[in-house]
């Protein structure tokens, strides 16, 4: 398999001014992550709010500037500052689907104009060709082409998200970064959009970077999944492997925290106490040690590296407990 996108030691730090300090502090939104997306796959990025998953997605489409690290698309570094022509070239290959189906469409443009806009920006086709392309895109996402003259407010949330998908598809990209594309939608509609995304993946030859807080959705759609916590990837594995054998204590807790739609399967214990620490002053050592019930002395000083679990190069975990070279202490399963 060929790597389509490689992220290497990506860091995004935002300056914030604290009242008590003269020098600006930094929010370490993304703090050194590595992953690779292969052609045709769906790569999931999960975690709770503030873990840096959205920032990672935005850095890939250059909506935020990386502070350090590299991002290679098809072998070319796209993390450095770019000229407009390069930026446009990137836009034809990598697109973005936003979370909010309401604020992501310009309320004053018709749906036809919204979907046509990327074609105009890139000077693709004349007016008649563009009209045809728009009609095809709208049909492909399950809307009728004669609604091109309607305004976004005439559509429901799910239909608006379809319009957002059509706009992202207009330039025929290879990779689409999807930032929580279904979290603002009702369940029944969510299922429609997820199915649509799967269908389009085949017909348009797409790879997805799918960002979500919802593990069930990620499990349904993704081939490989990275779990993020406090700006770091704590576990990265294939879907089967991750859900059968979640090895990082955080991934385990995250899975246990999901309320199952089954009254027979009641949760009895709080899977995790406390809150995520501030990304302005992340704790030393393992970022998760403040909430981890297995934490021991080394976790508080020494930051664990993302290493293969039991020699399996496709299942990476950043936890001292999972790596036998840490010696003395082994993870005690309940």
């Amino acid at each position: 398999m060929n790597p389509l996108l490689e992220v290497k030691q990506l860091k995004v730090h935002f300056p914030v001014r604290l009242k008590s300090q003269f020098r600006p502090a930094y929010v370490r939104a993304v703090d050194g992550i590595d992953f690779t997306i292969y052609k045709g796959e769906t790569f999931g990025l999960v975690g709770e709010s503030g873990c840096g998953k959205t920032t990672t997605g935005k850095a890939i489409v250059k909506l935020v500037e990386p502070s350090a690290g590299r991002i290679f698309y098809d072998g070319k570094d796209i993390a450095r500052p770019m000229k407009r022509a390069e930026r446009k070239e990137l836009a034809r290959n990598v697109q973005f689907i936003f979370q909010d189906p309401f604020s992501s469409l310009d309320p004053r443009l018709t749906v036809g104009k919204i979907v046509e806009e990327p074609l105009i920006i890139h000077g693709l086709g004349d007016a008649e060709e563009r009209r045809k392309t728009v009609a095809k895109l709208l049909t492909d996402v399950g809307l009728s082409a004669d609604r091109a003259q309607s305004f976004p407010h005439e559509f429901s949330g799910g239909q608006r998200q379809r319009i957002g998908v059509a706009r992202a598809l207009a330039l025929n990209p290879s990779l689409i970064v999807c930032d929580e594309p279904v979290s603002a939608l009702d369940v029944s509609v969510q299922a429609q959009i997820l199915n649509l995304m799967k269908t389009l993946q085949d017909s348009y030859n797409l790879s997805y970077l799918f960002i979500s807080h919802n593990l069930a959705v990620v499990k349904h759609l993704c081939d490989r999944i990275a779990v993020m916590y406090l700006g770091k990837i704590v576990e990265l594995a294939g879907k089967q492997s991750l859900f059968e054998k979640p090895s990082h204590p955080y991934a385990e807790a995250l899975l246990a925290a999901i309320p199952l739609p089954d009254p027979e399967a009641l949760m009895h214990d709080e899977p995790l106490e406390g809150d995520m620490p501030s990304p302005i002053k992340p704790p030393p050592g393992c970022p998760f040690h403040t909430r981890c019930k297995y934490a021991f002395a080394r976790c508080r000083i020494d930051e664990p590296q993302l290493l293969p679990l039991d020699g399996d190069a496709d299942h990476l975990v950043a936890c001292h407990l999972c790596h036998p070279d840490t010696g003395t202490i082994h993870k005690i399963k309940k």
Partner: peptide
Amino acid sequence: QEFVQACQVMGASTGRILFRH
């Protein structure tokens, strides 16, 4: 607003974003 960010992702020029959106 996300629709302005969407234009940036499409590679739109600053002028276009300012005047059209």
